[in-house]
Design a protein around this nucleic acid. Structure first.
Lengths: 180, 180
DNA sequence: GGCGCAGGGTTACAGTATAACATTTTCTCT
DNA sequence: AGAGAAAATGTTATACTGTAACCCTGCGCC
């Protein structure tokens, strides 16, 4: 983990070299905010944020990276929180169903949501070098994230229920590193 | 195949009840056009459209549906064109790499490209009832398919190399059928 | 106390994909 | 035509991803 090719962590606030979504920020605060939002929503909506669910969310929040299900499972096993695949998939299902995490389809992997308080249509930028993921913010109700999709759906009489919008490429930090 | 829940095929030109992408059209012509475009591009670019590759593309073109790799493999086996998974994956890799087919990430499945002659950013509408897929047309170089993604990438200094843009929902035909 | 239900444990398996190596075909160059 | 390189295909084995089905426990509720 500490050998991840993830440069750009120089503000000195985080204890580890965890990836931070292509830019410096106070990751401790970022995590705390997300957890607080999730707690609030669970309280408000009667969702049960059990110890396993909370812990897995914390794990996902550690870095702005997509984790594969079996990676999550390994972490759970290491902490005695479940031994078999269904345990991990059930937790990830809870988190994604409620918008606390998202699945990156092209990677078969999962990433913590960075603004779990809002209803939104997620879209992602994924760096193939450092594996970092940033999630863009688009609120539901206003203009949707993908005008092409909306126009095509409109024209075809198609009712959109879910969207998968992902970009894969190279982040600014890794571009700079490559050119050096 | 003939029991697929795919209504709307009433123009009487196709021999089977294959799904046709949410609307009536001359599917024989649609297939012929696509094959001709692919042949032209292979000739122009020195790509080898071997018998297996050609046949798998034909199979994918039979319907506007996404086929899973092992479905493709079964068809190949039935025709003596390959027995093991790598055979299917290699053909699908050739077709997707060259833009003759696309992978629908959220389905782990593949669909023939409906306009293989043009360079384009594909985006898809996938019906969860009839499993039909339509691909929208957006040429590269003009305005890209997804403004949100472009704006976010621009702001982050992210270089986009590939996109995954998919909508999942219900097509007009299945909506009509559901409401009946 | 009994009931219903969500959460979680466990086994077994289904579905997706690729590494690695052998063989054959095709291309190219002389 | 023949040698050598490169591309395509065949084959075995295995890794990775995901789920069905069943059981058991703990908790709220009448």
């Amino acid at each position: 983990m500490s050998s991840d090719p993830t440069p750009g962590q120089t503000n000195g606030r985080r204890p580890t070299g965890a990836p931070v979504g292509f830019s410096n920020h106070d990751h401790g605060l970022c995590v705390a905010d997300a957890m607080a939002e999730v707690e609030a929503r669970c309280a408000a909506e009667g969702l049960r944020l059990t110890p396993v669910r909370r812990r897995v969310l914390e794990i996902l929040l550690e870095s702005h990276r997509a984790m594969r299900a079996y990676e999550v499972l390994e972490r759970m096993q290491a902490e005695g929180l479940g031994a078999q695949p269904p345990a991990a998939y059930r937790v990830l299902d809870f988190l994604t169903t409620n918008g606390f995490a998202h699945r990156i389809e092209a990677l078969n992997a999962f990433v913590a949501c960075t603004h779990p308080g809002e209803h939104h249509v997620p879209a992602f930028l994924h760096c193939r070098i450092c594996d970092g993921v940033v999630e863009t913010v688009t609120s539901v109700g206003s203009v949707q994230g993908d005008s092409l999709l909306d126009a095509a759906a409109q024209a075809a009489g198609f009712r959109i229920e879910a969207r998968t919008v992902e970009a894969h490429g190279i982040c600014s930090i890794c571009r700079a590193a490559e050119e050096a």
